[in-house]
Every structure is written in C-alpha cells, then in structure tokens.
Amino acid sequence: MTPVELSRTVLHAVRRAVDEGELRVTVPERVVVAPPRPGGCGDYATNVALRLARPAGEPARHVAEILRPHLLRDGRIAEVVVTGPGFLNISLRSAAPVALVQEILRCGPRYGHGDSLGGRLVRLRAPHEVRAVVHADALGRILRSQGAVVRTGHDRPPEEAWSTVLGVDIHLDGPGDGHPDASDATDATDVTDGTDATDVRVRPVPAPADPLPLGRDAARWALLHPAPHDRPRIGAEHLVQREDNPLFRVRYAHARTRALLRNAADLGFAPEPGPVTGADVQPLLQALADHPRVLAAAAAHRAPDRLARHLVAVADATPPLLPAVLPVGEEKPSAAHRARLALADAAGTVLAGGLSLLGIDAPDHL
C-alpha cells in the first residue's frame, strides 16, 4: 500500500464513521500520512483525529479509537496503535509478491511517489558550498516525489561547473528573503514551520575536497550517501568497479536485471508477475515493499542518505534471485522463470527510479 492509497483509506475510515453516526463532522477533502515522529510506531502516522476532535466535540484519543476499527477493516493494515494525544500509528502488512511486482511495473520509476506532502511549499536554501548545493538539489527531487512544491535558493550564485558537471538544477532566489541565516543554524538541516511554507536551511558537513574530478555520478554519490552530519570521503574509491564500492553494487545490480531482460527476449519470453517462492527472494521482496516508506521518510526528514542506503539494501538483496531467472540448457521457459524475471525487472526499476531521484544515472550496461 502506497502513502497515497493509505491516505485514501484513512479518509474512507472517517467517512464510514460519519455515515454510521459515530462522528458528527464534515469529512475532510484530504488526509496526510507520514512516517511516525519520535514516540510513534509502525510504518505511518496521521493526526486526523486531532484535526477532527474540536469539530466533533470529542477528545482526540476518543476520535482515534472510533477510527481504529474502521482502519482495521482493510486487510492491508496489520495494526493501528493510538499514541500521544491521539495520533494513529499504522503498521502495514507485507505486500503479496504478485501484487507488489505488478504495482512496481505499473508505476515504473515513479513507484513510491506519493502525496504525503501534497501541495506543501518547501523553500530550500543552501550556502555557497558544493555539498550543500548538491544536497538541496537532491532534496528538491525527493520532496517533489512526495507532492511538495519546492523552491530552491542559494546565498550566492553556484559555480557554473556545479551545474554543468554535477547536474545541479539551479533556481536562484535573492539573499535576505526571510530564510534562516547560516550563522543561526546548529544542525545539518534547520526547519522553521510557517503557516503556508516550510523554510529549510540545507547545511551538511562540507566536502573536504573538490568532488568535480569524480564526475557527476560518483561525486553526487560521495556527497549524498553519508548522513548530512558525517564528513564525506572524496576519493577514487567511488570510481572503482568492485564490490566494496556501494555505488558500483547498486548500478551493477540494475545493469544485471536489464541484461536478463535482453537475454530473456532473445529466448522468446517476457516478464510476467506470478508467485515467487524461496528464502532467497524474501529480503528483496521486503526491500521493494519498503521503498514507498523510505521515500516518504527521506522527504520528511530531509535525508537523501536514507534513500541511498536503501538502494544499497535493494542491490544487495538482488543477486540471490538472478541465477534462477533464465532456463538452463534445454530447459524451456516456465511460469516460474517469467515470475522471477518480473521480480528482477521490478528490482531494476526501483534501483533506476531511486538513483534518478539522487540525480545519478542508471546505465543498462556496465
């Protein structure tokens, strides 16, 4: 279940409670779900009960308890826990493998995109430092994937090479337009919520060296894969094609799935979602099912490194599937081969879509 689908499910639960006379409120036009804050639990949380408490004339926790059984009617929801003053914390059941693969292949690279930040204006501002500018660029992509409207500004015009070499999409606002000043920031990212917008000061630990010699993909990975508060490493280790390079593992896993699709086409068969069994595929299925939640969390916490680490997890879970995708010897392609090929295609699709949000290319050949 994607964040968009869960938002609709929560909205339907409110409507059912109103229709059955348990709540007397006007059903809202939309409901926002997001990763739970500290003190919460589960996969997603919503404050809809707090929003409805005053018009309903009921305590928020009571409203939440009314909505809880309506949410549990949906078989895709495993548990709903009420925390704090009335937050609904929702745990999802793992997606059925066939439905999961069908959903990924239907959505393509946009799998996991949602509207948890639908229509919310987020103004990003970066100092004149290459890592901050690249972070702002990647954050803009991730925030837009969750429905936010993003405006990006810089304290000074970025270097032209940051655009031409690193692929930074530069949108300039003038300094002094109400964004937090760098001297006031104490964390990697400082957020000030207003009525209509969120101002975000993007200030990761600066790069210790010029990343431009690494080229676009390796440089962006070197700057985005570490957490904002960690010092990045800028060196040739990001260019080597070997297993101890996480970027190589991600791109190699993607390229192998594309090679399997080409080889299967030569053998006369195509991917077709179906049951896939075996302990070797369970970590991959879980990682693919987690992708929408990871994207929502990366947007909510302004943390592109969460997406980068998740792509490594997907890549590392992919190789055990691949040896059994194609027929061997005189073996004819079967439904099992088509189903495994579809799962491999889904893994490659998620890897390509995630790399795109980080501004990194996913080549079909390595």
Rank of each mutant, 00 (worst) to 15 (best):
6 L>Q: 00
10 V>S: 08
11 L>P: 10
13 A>P: 08
16 R>N: 12
31 V>Y: 04
36 P>H: 02
40 G>P: 11
43 D>R: 00
44 Y>H: 04
44 Y>E: 07
50 L>A: 07
53 A>N: 04
53 A>I: 02
59 P>Q: 09
69 P>N: 13
73 R>Y: 05
78 A>N: 00
83 T>C: 11
84 G>H: 00
85 P>L: 10
94 S>P: 14
94 S>W: 12
95 A>G: 12
101 V>N: 08
107 C>D: 15
111 Y>M: 11
116 S>C: 06
120 R>H: 06
120 R>W: 04
121 L>R: 10
122 V>S: 09
126 A>I: 09
128 H>N: 11
128 H>K: 07
132 A>L: 06
140 G>V: 14
142 I>F: 05
143 L>P: 10
148 A>R: 03
152 T>N: 11
155 D>N: 12
156 R>A: 15
157 P>K: 06
160 E>W: 15
166 L>V: 03
172 L>R: 13
175 P>Q: 05
180 P>W: 04
183 S>C: 13
193 D>E: 15
193 D>N: 09
197 A>T: 08
198 T>S: 12
199 D>M: 12
200 V>I: 13
200 V>T: 04
201 R>N: 09
203 R>G: 02
204 P>T: 05
206 P>L: 08
211 P>Y: 09
214 L>K: 08
216 R>E: 10
217 D>S: 10
221 W>E: 03
223 L>N: 01
223 L>D: 00
225 H>M: 13
227 A>G: 08
230 D>C: 07
235 G>D: 15
253 A>I: 07
258 R>W: 04
260 L>S: 01
262 R>A: 11
266 D>Q: 15
269 F>A: 09
270 A>C: 13
275 P>M: 04
278 G>H: 06
282 Q>N: 07
285 L>H: 03
287 A>H: 12
289 A>N: 15
290 D>Q: 15
292 P>C: 09
293 R>G: 13
295 L>G: 10
298 A>K: 03
298 A>Y: 06
300 A>S: 11
303 A>I: 12
308 A>V: 05
310 H>V: 08
312 V>K: 01
312 V>Y: 07
317 A>T: 06
319 P>W: 13
326 L>D: 02
332 K>P: 06
333 P>I: 02
334 S>F: 07
340 R>M: 07
348 G>E: 01
349 T>H: 10
351 L>K: 00
355 L>E: 03
356 S>N: 08
357 L>H: 00
363 P>Y: 05
363 P>H: 03
364 D>P: 05
365 H>W: 10
365 H>V: 15
